[in-house]
Amino acid sequence: MAVQALGAAAAANESLTKAAAQPLAGGTTLIDLMKLDVMRPTAIVDINPLARAWSAIAPGGDGLRLGALARMSDVAANTEIQRSYPVIADSLKLAASAQLRNMATLGGNVMQRTRCNYFRDVSYENCNKRNPGSGCAAMDGVNRMHAVLGTSDQCIATYPGDFAQALIALDAMVEITGKAGTRSMPFAQLHKAPGTTPDIETALQPGELISAFSIQGRWPRSVYLKTRDRQSYEFALSSAAIALDVQDGTIRDARVALGGVATVPWRAREAEALLKGQRFDDGLAQRVGEAAFADARGRRHNSFKIALGKRVVARALQQAAMMEI
């Protein structure tokens, strides 16, 4: 499928190899950031003509394949995904607004940029993400929405999305198409924690596009719990993507991913390890929550996310454990 699309992609790639060229899919992030003067592409490449080849929504017997140009609302509405991958359907359904979900694509969704106010306001010089080496205004500024995990001395900007938590929890692979062809990598390797280079956000090379996501197996016992200030159309203060494989009361496999609290889509692997081989109880859920935030570091306004995040993980685990499959 991607191979067929390469003809169209080739033209795109030529423009995309220029550093300042940007692909446009749903446009729900790029256009905003251009109006704010945060992103200043010299060329925009409309990749929507690739949609015919790149918008598969294909749940199958042994896994799921999602094209990067599938629209969020279409994926969320797919009954087989709702049945076999509720964590995916819910992470999409609880994101943004109906209008945005109708426009936004999966590829664009995982590439959306942080909502850090200091990043989005160019009148602040000091943003290491925008102006490498300039400092971070958020570190000691208004940082209620900022990250407590995966931060560095350079950047505490939160990765804002929801869908990515479902992908990273389910060990998704991301398929990337570029001039040299198609390559695959674990989705967990796509986003780069800020470290000393917060301006480098993903492993995508210039000219490369995400073409698809794939997931092995089915995960009917999975949930996405999202906590936020209002009931809809709002980013997570803390969210948890949970997937469990329970056989005869014993947890054989467990996945815990966190949103709204980390600089990148976050997988809490140490916490997951506590679950494997165990029988579920509320005490265990609490210990998992504690473990997931063991390394968390709060700042002036966002420390509450640590206690909140622990409870969200514990509650999401309870919900997953109680699901009737």
């Binding site: 106010n117 200091y118 500024g141 929405m145 209002r230 809809s232």
Partner: peptide
């Protein structure tokens, strides 16, 4: 002012 936009200055949506 930091949250000077309608994404961050929250007002209720219908669901609220």
């Amino acid at each position: 002012y930091v949250n000077d936009n309608l994404a961050d200055y929250l007002v209720p949506v219908n669901a609220d």
